[in-house]
């Protein structure tokens, strides 16, 4: 965990290119409050802000070769991802709104296991929070990715997607075009 605010937090992966997939559910924090978030954006770049990577590997056969011949690369680059907070757990109960306090710096971020994803997606209230976010990634893409990811954890992904689609249709009843764009991405 590198930065945290009430609505989101940013974390760095231990390994290069190991950020969780877009839209996947992650959690952080210890008892009593656990925060749940959806991965909304990921970047990979130089460790030092002023130092840009240069083009390499003109003579190498594959991309893997580039990293093999320049092992320092994995230490000079970092992968980060930012997460949108969509709910929290206090005790046994799940709440689909923002937690009272943001996450702590240097907290650990875990990917949720499929059963946790299932439990969290019992309610589709988190969709409303996603719709109202402001991120570099387009909201449509984010929602579609989140639903695709969450759907995989369900026994009947189609039924879940239909239920989610219906929820979206209600939430976006005035924005037909946006709704259509999201549904197109769910197929």
């Amino acid at each position: 965990m590198l930065a945290a605010s009430t609505t989101d937090f940013t974390a760095q992966c231990y390994g290069l290119y190991q950020s969780p997939p877009l839209g996947s559910l992650v959690k952080t924090g210890d008892e009593p409050i656990e925060l749940y978030g959806i991965v909304g954006h990921a970047t990979t770049g130089s460790l030092e802000p002023g130092r840009r990577p240069i083009a390499r590997g003109q003579d190498e056969a594959s991309e893997e070769e580039v990293y093999r011949t320049s092992p320092q690369l994995s230490k000079l680059l970092k992968s980060e991802f930012s997460v949108l907070v969509v709910g929290h757990r206090e005790g046994d109960k799940l709440y689909y709104y923002l937690p009272p306090r943001p996450a702590r710096i240097h907290g650990f971020v875990y990917r949720c296991r499929p059963e946790e994803v299932r439990e969290f997606s019992q309610s589709l209230d988190f969709l409303n929070m996603l719709i109202n976010t402001n991120l570099p990634t387009s909201v449509d893409e984010l929602i579609a990715a989140a639903l695709r990811q969450t759907g995989q954890a369900h026994e009947d992904p189609r039924a879940f997607l239909v239920a989610a689609g219906k929820e979206l249709a209600v939430l976006l009843s005035g924005q037909f075009n946006q709704l259509k764009a999201i549904l197109e991405r769910l197929k």
């Binding site: 997607l161 239909v162 219906k166 249709a169 037909f176």
Partner: peptide, 26 residues
């Protein structure tokens, strides 16, 4: 329908998924 635009540009209901989502909501 909830949104009049739905009538002007009907969704692709040949897709059962889309059809199912829209029925009963929009």
């Amino acid at each position: 329908v909830t949104d009049p635009r739905l009538i002007l540009t009907p969704p692709d209901v040949a897709d059962p998924f889309i059809a199912e989502v829209f029925s009963g909501t929009s």
